[in-house]
């Protein structure tokens, strides 16, 4: 077997030329396509990663915003609750104050009305008592009635301490519900002379509010022997009983 070295060299050159041709026509273009596709894939993956990262960031931001909103909502709710409570307390205080004011006014009105009614009743009772007394007095003999009131007045004068009894020069006013005639004045002078020892300073006057009877106005004391005083005592007793009840 003989080796043709020219052929060996030619074949080596041929293979090297083929290597050059394939490198230019096959490897480089295919490698370029593969690299570009790899770059596109890498770019897509990067974009996907960026989109994923952006999505995560947006989700994180949204969650933070949601937490912030929830926190704000809780704060608003607590503030609103506090405001509601304060407003409620304020309204309650106002209503309570207004109610108390209205109650106070109502009580005052009631009290005034009660006093008015009481005064009216008292007035009516007074008129009724006066009317009853007059009706009773009309049925009784006037001298006897006057004598009875005089007896009561004299008895009270007798129970006065010694310093309160007038002297000879002191003025004593005898006030009656109706004006006394001469006979009745004479009766009064006679009875009072027996008590005071003199009637020198005795004067007569009238006061319809006494209803019936007389009132001796001494320098240092007043002796009441009339129905107005009696009725007043009766009313005080009744009021005392009502308060006790």
């Amino acid at each position: 077997m003989k080796i043709e070295w020219w052929t060996v060299g030619l074949q080596a050159v041929n293979v090297l030329i083929l290597l050059w041709l394939l490198h230019r026509l096959l490897y480089r273009p295919i490698r370029g396509v593969l690299d570009q596709r790899q770059q596109q894939t890498t770019l897509l993956l990067q974009q996907a990663d960026e989109a994923r990262s952006q999505g995560r960031a947006e989700r994180t931001a949204l969650e933070a915003e949601r937490r912030e909103l929830a926190k704000s909502r809780r704060n608003l709710e607590s503030d609103a609750q506090a405001a509601i409570v304060a407003e409620r307390d304020r309204l309650l205080a106002g209503v309570q104050a207004e109610a108390e004011e209205r109650a106070r006014v109502a009580r005052a009105l009631l009290e005034a009305e009660r006093q008015s009614v009481e005064a009216a009743l008292l007035e009516e009772a007074s008129h009724l008592a006066v009317d009853i007394a007059r009706r009773l007095l009309d049925r009784l003999p006037k001298p006897a009635v006057l004598a009875a009131f005089l007896d009561g007045a004299c008895a009270q004068v007798n129970r006065l301490p010694g310093g309160s009894v007038p002297g000879m020069d002191d003025e004593v006013e005898l006030v009656s519900a109706v004006e006394l005639d001469d006979a009745e004045q004479g009766l009064c002078r006679e009875r009072l002379r027996a008590v005071f020892g003199t009637d020198k300073g005795l004067r007569f006057g009238t006061d319809p509010t006494l209803i019936a009877g007389i009132e001796l106005r001494l320098p240092h004391a007043v002796v009441r022997s009339h129905w107005a005083n009696d009725l007043s005592l009766v009313l005080e007793r009744l009021h005392a009983d009502a308060r006790a009840a």
Binding site: L10, L18, L22, L25
Partner: peptide, 24 residues
């Protein structure tokens, strides 16, 4: 000397180069 194997090699190279050229 140009042997037959060299000519065959040239033909094969040509076919491969043409195929790769069309592919590229």
């Amino acid at each position: 000397p140009i042997a037959a194997q060299v000519v065959s090699t040239w033909a094969i190279m040509l076919l491969l180069a043409l195929a790769c050229w069309r592919l590229s």
